[in-house]
């Protein structure tokens, strides 16, 4: 099996692939904990808008000549992170203060980031080629993720973000749940709802930043949607849903990485299809169970 060879065959191979596995598990856990909120608050399209802002951020970082073209560089990560947070806050401002419909606001941010990102990446790659340098990565890896580009530095960043975000989520859990269930009721109950929503948007943006390296900006939304959607089909108890979502997220990533190793697929699509497979399996099992109950 290639999986065993890649992970345990030699120290060189292990140092190449283990970071991707560890990052995958960490970001899957984080996204899966956020996922029920994203699904229940119908924020999946916001995740899509924020993740595409990362594409613009990568373009901006490359155009600025940061990180010598490597997205693993901290400077690039900072620019991408700021782009995602700015996009999340931009969506909130357009929606809240300018009276723009949420879907429209997200659509505007999404296409702007994609168009600007594409042009900036092309421009930066052209400049590098003219200087006789090879760009560190292509547009395809930004869009659909890359396993070989994940390094131990990314692991440290992912671990810090995951621990920090899970801590914030635990600290604010009661306010978050109240707000997510009933914004108006929460506001009348003394909760600063604008602050809670902004905080969640920032958490989503940072989760996207640490996930996009592996999954790519196009597929990162799957990490934020599929685990929660699956878990909500399995239970009507909130904390059990969060636990099941975490399990689905981690299992989906591990399964996807194994598929990716064995079939030599890109990790992003392999992980997403694994998660879709689990979701479809749960739906099918539910249908069989309901049919059995009727008979």
């Amino acid at each position: 099996m290639r999986t065993i060879d890649y992970l345990f065959g030699s120290p060189e191979m292990a140092s190449l692939f283990w970071p991707a596995v560890v990052v995958g598990v960490l970001v899957a856990l984080l996204c899966a904990v956020l996922s029920p909120l994203v699904v229940l608050k119908r924020m999946s399209f916001i995740g899509q808008g924020v993740s595409h802002a990362a594409f613009g951020g990568v373009g901006l970082a490359m155009a600025l000549g940061l990180g010598a073209g490597s997205a693993g560089d901290w400077q690039v990560v900072a620019v991408v992170g700021l782009s995602c947070v700015a996009a999340a806050l931009g969506i909130a401002v357009l929606n809240d203060r300018q009276g723009v419909n949420a879907d429209t606001a997200i659509g505007i941010v999404l296409v702007t980031a994609m168009a600007a990102g594409f042009l900036l990446i092309e421009h930066a790659a052209g400049v590098m080629r003219a200087r006789g340098e090879t760009p560190g990565f292509g547009i395809e890896s930004v869009l659909f993720g890359s396993m070989l580009g994940v390094r131990w530095g990314d692991v440290a960043l992912a671990a810090a973000v995951v621990v920090g975000e899970l801590g914030v989520l635990w600290w604010w859990r009661r306010r978050l749940v109240f707000w997510a269930f009933d914004e108006v009721g929460a506001a009348s109950g003394g909760i600063g709802t604008a602050g809670v929503r902004t905080m969640l948007l920032v958490l989503l943006a940072l989760a996207v930043v640490v996930t996009m390296r592996l999954a790519g900006v196009v597929l990162v939304t799957a990490f934020l949607v599929l685990p929660g959607a699956t878990a909500l089909r399995c239970s009507t108890k909130l904390w059990r849903v969060v636990g099941l979502s975490a399990v689905q997220g981690v299992v989906g990533v591990v399964l996807g990485l194994v598929v990716s190793f064995e079939l030599d697929w890109q990790p992003g699509p392999a992980i997403v299809l694994s998660q879709v497979g689990i979701y479809a399996g749960v739906c099918a099992a539910g249908a069989v169970k309901r049919r059995g109950a009727v008979e």
């Binding site: 029920p36 229940l40 608050k41 749940v177 997510a180 269930f181 009933d182 914004e183 108006v184 009721g185 909500l232 239970s235 009507t236 108890k237 909130l238 059990r240 849903v241």
Partner: peptide, 8 residues
């Protein structure tokens, strides 16, 4: 106003 799909 409330999100009744919430597992609560």
């Amino acid at each position: 106003v409330a999100e009744l799909a919430f597992p609560l």
